[in-house]
Design a binder for these strands. Sequence first.
DNA 1: GAGATTATGTCAGCCGCTGACATCAGGCAA
DNA 2: TTGCCTGATGTCAGCGGCTGACATAATCTC
Lengths: 240, 240
Amino acid sequence: MAPTSTAFPAPGSDPAAAESATTGLRERKKQRTREALVDAAHRLFLSQGYAGTTVDEIAAAVDVSQRTFFRYFANKEEAALAVMSDAEDHFIELLRARPAGEPPLPAMREAICATWRDFSASHHPAGRGVTAALELVQLIETTPTLLAAHLRRSADQERRVAEILAAREGVDPAADLRPRLLAAVFGAAVRTAHLAWTAGAAARPAEDDGPEGLIAVIQHHLDQLGPALAADWSDTARGI
Amino acid sequence: MAPTSTAFPAPGSDPAAAESATTGLRERKKQRTREALVDAAHRLFLSQGYAGTTVDEIAAAVDVSQRTFFRYFANKEEAALAVMSDAEDHFIELLRARPAGEPPLPAMREAICATWRDFSASHHPAGRGVTAALELVQLIETTPTLLAAHLRRSADQERRVAEILAAREGVDPAADLRPRLLAAVFGAAVRTAHLAWTAGAAARPAEDDGPEGLIAVIQHHLDQLGPALAADWSDTARGI
DNA sequence: GAGATTATGTCAGCCGCTGACATCAGGCAA
DNA sequence: TTGCCTGATGTCAGCGGCTGACATAATCTC
């Protein structure tokens, strides 16, 4: 079984049609099973909790054996984090597509915002995507096992990002610390933004106003990176 | 069974004597068992790998039942990360002790360097501490499960650090993003430094020259935080 | 339609981890 | 010293995540 193809489609395209044209029945079936498993897992995790859901339950919900589940996902976490994983792949693609002259941090900033915009537009119509993302991020942050797995994935992601940055800027990734550092710092800022977003979500109205709320939070965090590193934390030094 | 007391002692003090004076036989025995388990785990993990070592083996090496192991550690990872955990607690103490007027980033810088100096001075004589630390960090970085658990612990650590920073600087931790951001960025930089250190260790002579090598790597990474965030990555802009 | 591929089901089994209960050792007071 | 009380340990049974091996059934290729 080949590894699943990456990311979600660009908005406007029809993924199902494009897929069935290029691939056979076997591949389509596999894709459907995989999506069904992710869906069932997501639903069960949210209603019963992550630890309270057994792999057997997920498999049974899709009418598939437990062994089959583990042929699609290396472990229980992978099923929960599949959507995040797609988003990360999509971010990489968008970052690679940024214009060459753009400085590194702005390039990443644009890529992350576009990632969330594309995310909420695809897969789930009518903005359901952002609500689903919120639920998922909250699930991750409140489940130690999932948080651990997610952070480990993020570390891999940062390695990929560092390589792209080094190539973009034409520096030696072995000698120059800046690519790895910026990738790590960016990852830290985005994760902190996710935390703030999920924490604030309880206070906000429950309606889904698209990805702009989350994007604003991320932008705000990136803006505060400089002030946070500054020696002077008096309010006059902060960009308020 | 009460949670184990924190951190390693200040250099110069005699922990065993101080302990036996204040606590009874029961407590001392528990402490010895715990240390023996950590030691055995460390040794077995390094020789057979983490996944290749069962909890039964560790327990058997200390002549203790598997059930007892799980009364000391919530899971297998915790035994592997116990030393790191002590170091993190010690860092928190040192950060709390930094003078009030000091800016946040320098305070953290001094605290992390002192943490490693104290670490190599205590527990393991003649610099064995740093070699042990190197082996441990390498084990963590090369073992996905351990890396995940370690990163999760780091996230907790960052929350604690953010609270201390907010209190030090007298800002509102709920409204001001800087404490959480700086804690996260600092954590990211230190982890990146650890990675670079372990990667470079293969090329360096195997002799243990104390913690100064690692400390220099960390300092260098902290120095490069500003340049990494800068828009201009030309070498003239970098602080070489 | 026959044969090669590949996904799936079944089964057995290891290992991490936990609750329940019995047992034993250290702490404490009479 | 004796004897009770608290708490650490051992034993046992059992669940759930995860894997290898093999048989079966579905798709693909010609």
